[in-house]
Amino acid sequence: MTPFRYSRATDVADAIRQSGDCNTRYLGGGTNLVDLMRETVERPEALVDVSGLSRDIEELPDGGLLIGAGVRNTALAEHRSVRTRYPALSRAILAGASAQIRNMATVGGNLLQRTRCAYFYDDDGSRCNKRLPGQGCDALEGFNRNHAILGASPSCVAVHPSDMAVALAALDGVVHLHGARGERSFPVADLHRLPGDRPDVDTLLEPGELITAIELPPLPFAARSTYRKVRDRSSYAFALVSVAALLDVEDGRIRDVRIALGGVAHKPWRAFKAEEVLRGGPPRAAAFTAAADAELADAKPLAGNGFKIELARRTIAAVLGELAGETA
């Protein structure tokens, strides 16, 4: 691990002040950043500890929730309002990592996890455009079973590893940011970038910008939401494919629907095309499969991950089927 300065932020303003140097990183639970620093994939000169900030979950007057970025994953998953009004979010968090890691990891840090691509991690022996732009990508022709089928580029085929972010993308979550130039916010689904020719840039965050909170809008039909994760081990493994979905059925018609996919792209993949196909139609198996097909029409398999297309197709259909069954 490269030597670094450590300091603790007293509040958001203090954190932003301290982050003046662009080689400073904010430290949440450390569960991903400390690991990457030890692998010398990340080499910040300073860490500003923000893990003590923004640890509240606030009920908003409009019925939504405002989740501080420092809230621990466990605290969010066990929060009563999340469990009952946004169960997909609880389920997604509980499907991720291990209890120990969920106790440490913050909501902000979870969103900013970096890919688990083996070539990205291998600072000593592999080429990776995400680590070092222009170096080349060893995953393209290498082990890419876990890699992207949607939105990848010739320079990067990595996937985003978060489960929580997939649920937040489906639930229309909004991320609140503070930076030197003030505050801003945008949908979680837009936070992460597609790799293009700059896979080193994971998100739209500007240097020094800090995630302060996630807002969940009031979304009554989110009470009928779920998250399904498909993985090689029964637990404690990253998703091959995951699906977060909400389904609002009224009078035999799909009034509204949200779907997001994990494990398939460089970002949590909001399945807008599938939603479009479904809206207004009947909640039937054929429609669910057609919607999945629409979303996956542009999927491009690599040598090792072609199965993900069929897996995603089936999992989307099964999750929607389950929700439709519940609603019926």
């Binding site: 083996a118 070539y119 291998d122 022996g125 592999s126 060893d138 022709e141 290498g142 082990f143």
Partner: peptide
């Protein structure tokens, strides 16, 4: 990885 003889996991 049979391209370079390196264990990747």
């Amino acid at each position: 990885d049979e391209r370079k003889g390196r264990v990747m996991n």
